[in-house]
């Protein structure tokens, strides 16, 4: 579904990605793990069109998308929930969700909204509250809900567990698993490698801009260097 080959991205003069290749097949959960500064968020931002690659290709369902503007990528069904949630604090919960379906018709937005409220009842309770007044966990729910409003074919999540309590993290991961079961393909970036590898089908390990290991989640869990570096075992 998503096929990335030899991706190279620079920040100014710093090469953040040094030739990243990865694939996501339909209905998979694929996780990208790595330490701070490995290039995980850069990879996602390049997929979403926020950053432009200097080399390499990105294809979504066979269609090249490298170099498209962020809104064009989003309109193809590749929707990202960025790190740090980025809730629009001055807009209400309902308005935040509504913007998630920005390009879709009013009618489709209504149907999706009903589905999101059903999936995340907390958001329905808080629909008229300003986004900035929600708790961290609720904001993450809102960010995911907002992305769902676009009916993504590929949902990209960047550090959904960041700064949340363990109980909330469990809920978030449960939600991700359910979304996947309902037919959404997922690309997940996580610091919490243990949990990510638990729900993922496959994984890639990114270090200083290179993919250093890849394989099924079960295999990566057994990999010695992964265990040492990311699972603390």
């Amino acid at each position: 579904m998503l096929k990335i080959e030899g991706l190279v991205t620079y920040y100014g003069r710093v090469r953040a990605l040094a030739g990243v290749s990865l694939q996501v097949a339909r209905d998979e959960i694929v996780t990208l793990i790595g330490s701070n500064g490995a290039g995980k968020s850069t990879t996602l931002m390049t997929i979403s069109g926020v950053l432009k690659p200097t080399e390499g290709s990105i294809a979504f369902e066979g269609r090249p998308i490298a170099g498209l503007a962020p809104h064009e990528v989003a309109r193809l069904g590749v929707v990202q929930v960025p790190e740090g949630r980025h809730i629009l604090r001055g807009l209400t919960v309902a308005e935040n969700l509504d913007l998630g379906g920005f390009v879709r018709s009013a009618e489709k937005r209504r149907t999706s909204l009903a589905r999101v409220y059903e999936l995340l009842p907390r958001l329905a309770e808080r629909r008229d509250q300003l986004g900035g007044t929600l708790s961290g966990g609720e904001q993450q729910m809102l960010a995911i809900g907002r992305a769902l409003m676009a009916q993504p074919r590929l949902l990209i999540l960047d550090e959904p567990s960041l700064g949340l309590a363990p109980r909330i993290i469990e809920q978030i991961f449960e939600l991700i698993r359910n979304l996947n079961k309902a037919g959404t393909t997922i690309l997940l970036v996580e610091q919490n490698a243990a949990m990510a590898l638990e729900i993922a089908d496959r994984g890639y390990v990114l270090e200083t801009g290179y993919i250093v290991a890849e394989g099924s989640a079960a295999m990566l869990r057994q990999n010695d260097s992964v265990r040492r570096a990311y699972l603390g075992l």
Binding site: A69, H86, V103
Partner: peptide, 13 residues
């Protein structure tokens, strides 16, 4: 409020 997220949401910034 947030240029990057607006783009990710499909808004032509």
């Amino acid at each position: 409020e947030d240029v990057t997220v607006s783009g990710l949401l499909g808004i032509n910034v």
